[in-house]
Nucleic acid binder design. Structure first.
Length: 273
DNA sequence: TAACACCTGTAA
DNA sequence: TTACAGGTGTTA
């Protein structure tokens, strides 16, 4: 579910609510999600530690502790972190529960595809997907020149390149389609048929759709919830994703749906070439 | 590069 | 009953 804007929306709230809180206990409803170590090892590692902040790289979250280890989290399709003050009611699909000195931090995940790792607080984590991440899509290292170089260095179609987290970190299926629409590029266009000028337009479109998503608190189609359990609003602003069969907001042509690299892909056949 | 795997839920 | 879903890692 969550792409960069959704993960960042969660991060900002969790950072604000849990920094400085002490972990008094951990309840593990689903040990399968802990990708290294047993539930008992996790309890021993986190109990008594104080949360010192929550940061993000691409779609990964890091929960920092005042000790030698940090918690690395990937929400995959339906994961989310929710902070509740006080005791609060149990929520559906809660898989991990951190008892804090004030309130609770809940990991909720319908499809249970999410991943949690205990990693060293500094240095490489040994988690391949994390250690090989490309520049963050809203960071200073992701530039138009860098994107152009990557397009030149790869073969194949442009949309799968945008979804490759080793190329650029944070873009997922919704924002890839939305950025390609803004840049007037067909998702099936070959990387080697994109000019320097068009690459610059694509770079700007990527940053724009991600920042718009962030401003609107993320996109809630089905499952996404922000750190306080509410819904994002960016679904109101989508141009192509989920709009197949309806008129393009710009030209009126019917938005198409195809499969590309195994992912549902939406585009305007008139605006995008 | 494609299919499949990991899961659960929902809509066609 | 089948297909599909904001992701990604492995396998053919």
């Amino acid at each position: 579910m969550p792409e960069l804007p959704e993960v960042e929306t969660i991060r900002a709230y969790i950072d604000r609510k849990t920094t400085g809180r002490r972990i008094d206990g951990l309840y593990v409803y689903m040990p399968r999600l802990l990708k290294n170590g047993t539930a008992d090892e996790w309890k021993a590692a986190v109990t008594g530690r104080t949360i010192t902040g929550c940061t993000r790289r691409g779609k990964y979250l890091l929960l920092h502790l005042d000790g030698p280890q940090a918690l690395l989290i990937h929400l995959r399709m339906t994961g989310s972190l929710v902070y509740t003050g006080g005791k609060g009611e149990d929520i559906r699909y809660q898989r991990l529960l951190f008892f804090l000195d004030e309130g609770r931090l809940i990991y909720r995940d319908i499809r249970t595809l999410g991943c949690w790792w205990l990693v060293p607080a500094a240095g490489p984590t040994g988690i391949t997907g994390y250690d090989t991440l490309g520049p963050d899509a809203i960071g200073n290292d992701f530039t138009a020149a860098y994107l152009y170089d990557q397009l030149k260095a790869h073969h194949g179609k442009v949309k799968p390149l945008l979804l490759d987290q080793t190329v650029v970190a944070g873009i997922g299926n919704i924002y890839a389609d939305e950025a390609l629409f803004l840049a007037h590029i067909r998702p099936s266009r070959c990387c080697d048929r994109i000019s320097k000028k068009t690459a610059a337009a694509l770079h700007d479109a990527i940053v724009q759709v991600l920042q718009q998503g962030l401003i609107h608190g993320g996109t809630t189609i089905r499952n996404f919830m922000t750190g306080d359990g509410s819904e994002g609003q960016n679904q109101e602003y989508l141009n192509v994703y989920g709009r197949e069969g309806t008129p393009c907001r710009v030209c009126g042509a019917t938005i198409k749906y195809v499969k590309l690299g195994g992912r549902g892909t939406h585009y305007c056949p008139h605006c995008q070439h």
